[in-house]
Computed example of a mutant assay.
Amino acid sequence: MEPDWVALMKRVRDDRDKAAFADLFTHFAPRVKGFLMKSGADATTAEECAQDVMTTLWRKADQFDPRRASVATWIFTIARNRRIDMLRRENRPEPEDLPWGPEPEPDQAEVIGLQQESALLVEALKALPEQQRDLIEKAYFGDLTQSEIASLTGLPLGTIKSRIRLALDRLRYLMK
């Protein structure tokens, strides 16, 4: 049986419980490293980044809200953001390659449209049943494969696929 990740996070958040952190670290650090390596990081960079993600979990545990995301989704979102930061640092242009002058202003209608669409998506996600919302968050915000979600949750792969398909259908309907 899988540990109660939310209870462990709350113990870290509320009591700075090192044993609870150790349990979270033991489970999630290797998975975060694997996720980072799958997304193109070499083993050393993935290891360093996974350590940084878990340090962030400890330092920012007070920001975890179980009503907004599962523990896995929260951790993998941190990992995804760290990976993006790493890529930005790696791809930072040399000063002579930087364009001169101000960046063009984005089209305001497009910005407003994206903001409205994002707000609609947030509301549609809230309307999903918790089981479906959790799977959508793991798949799309946690960048986990359906097989990884199945092994993480202990649910059969067919159940994962069905719930995600139902959730996506419901999201399409809610966002019309």
Rank of each mutant, 00 (worst) to 15 (best):
M1D: 08
D4N: 10
V6Q: 03
A7G: 10
K10D: 10
R11L: 11
V12C: 06
R13D: 05
D15V: 11
D17V: 01
A20Y: 02
T26W: 03
H27T: 05
F28P: 15
A29M: 12
R31G: 07
K33I: 01
G34S: 05
F35T: 09
G40K: 00
A41L: 12
A43R: 08
T44R: 11
T45N: 02
T45P: 00
E48Y: 06
E48K: 03
C49L: 06
Q51K: 02
D52M: 13
T56L: 07
T56P: 04
L57C: 10
R59Q: 15
D62W: 12
F64P: 11
R67Y: 15
R68V: 07
S70F: 10
T73S: 14
W74G: 04
W74K: 02
I75N: 06
T77F: 02
N81R: 12
I84H: 09
L87G: 09
R88W: 09
R89P: 06
P95N: 06
D97A: 14
W100K: 00
P102G: 10
P102N: 04
P102M: 13
E103Q: 14
E105S: 13
E105P: 04
P106H: 03
Q108C: 12
E110P: 08
E110Q: 10
L114Y: 11
Q115K: 15
Q115M: 14
Q116P: 05
L120K: 03
L121Q: 00
V122E: 04
E123G: 09
E123M: 08
A124R: 15
Q132G: 14
R133P: 08
L135N: 03
L135T: 05
K138E: 01
K138H: 01
Y140H: 14
Y140E: 05
D143I: 00
T145N: 04
T145R: 00
Q146D: 02
E148P: 03
E148G: 08
L152G: 01
G154P: 02
L155M: 05
P156L: 05
P156V: 12
S162V: 04
R163M: 07
I164C: 01
I164G: 07
R165W: 05
L166F: 06
L166N: 03
A167K: 04
L168T: 12
L168C: 14
R170W: 12
M175R: 15
